[in-house]
């Protein structure tokens, strides 16, 4: 059977890593048709056509699709659904906005944040902040599935799928984009970075968060933060790692001044190597750390930054 996969397209650019990971997860479900939708999406569609395992690409360009507003994007996908048994997307905030709406339009349940594909009807997904893994079998005719990208390796390149242009659905005109506030950064993207350095409440201020950023830059890493650090205004919301923020699984995760609430662990405990630096030896973060250092971060982090690289 066939799979329709919503590519992650932001302002015309394909998020290759997230999209290729979703393609890898969906490969066993059937032939994958990628949908690239946006005000401009042709270039993203061309790029997606080169992902190995992609059979076909549909490009829908329309002003209404420009900022991935849920209503016109969901209407477009629901209109295409008759040809597909699975509708899949990487579990980004965009897809989490759109896919449940699609599922309800099709009168099926959505299956969010899938971490394992057992077969075409059966999926594994974390519940209770990752404290349990549930295997669910769908009884719906269509399966609408978002993929936890941290659980899959990206599909490689080498595909040469055909690209077809399609029209957008009628815009229901329910919402309008006003503005984006996106901080420009030269650092790697958090969910696809090989190394992530994160700071928590223990860092103490926005100014001292520079220590975290300094170590990250030395390692070529992305910067993350705990909810406590974001709530306290030390770090912006898009750095949050955890149950309700981003889920990461880098080769190396360095947690600094983070106590390790289960909600934070939910977003990083699948990292390959975890380092924890905290002055409280009882902090739960040490239970998941491969290497723990009980130390004052204000001494340890500058020393570590100097000695690495």
């Amino acid at each position: 059977m066939a799979v329709l996969l919503l590519a992650e397209v932001t302002d015309g650019a394909l998020a290759l890593d997230a999209t290729a990971k979703a393609v890898a997860a969906a490969a066993s479900l059937g032939d994958v048709t990628v949908l690239a939708a946006g005000a401009s999406a042709a270039a993203a569609g061309e790029e997606a056509a080169k992902i190995a395992g992609v059979a076909k690409v549909l490009v829908a360009e329309d002003a209404s699709l420009g900022h991935r507003l849920a209503e016109p994007t969901a209407a477009l996908i629901a209109g295409l659904a008759s040809d597909f048994e699975h509708i899949v997307a990487p579990a980004t905030t965009d897809a989490k906005n759109v896919l449940p709406r699609v599922a309800a339009l099709l009168d099926v349940m959505v299956i969010s944040d899938v971490s394992g594909v057992v077969d075409g009807n059966t999926f594994e997904r974390p519940i209770y902040a990752g404290n349990a893994i549930q295997t669910v079998k769908s009884n719906d005719a269509k399966k609408v599935v978002s993929i936890r990208t941290a659980s899959f390796d990206a599909a490689g390149e080498g595909g040469s799928a055909s690209v077809e242009t399609i029209s957008a659905a009628a815009n229901p005109g329910l919402s309008e984009w006003v503005e984006d506030k996106v901080a420009a950064s030269d650092r790697p993207e958090l969910t696809s970075a090989g190394i992530v350095v994160s700071g928590g409440r223990g860092v103490g201020s926005e100014e001292d968060f520079k220590l975290i950023e300094g170590l990250a830059d030395k390692l070529g890493a992305a910067v993350g933060a705990s909810r406590a650090a974001v709530d306290s205004g030390y770090a912006p919301n898009d750095w949050q790692v955890g149950q309700t923020g981003k889920v990461v699984a880098p080769d190396l995760y360095v947690a600094i001044g983070i106590s390790g609430a289960i909600q934070h662990l939910a977003g990083m405990k699948d990292s390959k190597v975890i380092v924890a630096i905290n002055k409280d030896e009882e902090a739960p973060i040490f239970q998941v750390a491969d290497f723990g250092l009980v130390a004052d971060l204000f001494e340890a982090v500058p020393a570590l930054t100097e000695k690495l690289g």
Partner: peptide, 9 residues
């Protein structure tokens, strides 16, 4: 609150 930062609609 979106992956890239903040979006206002």
């Amino acid at each position: 609150e979106v992956d890239g930062g903040l979006q206002t609609i």
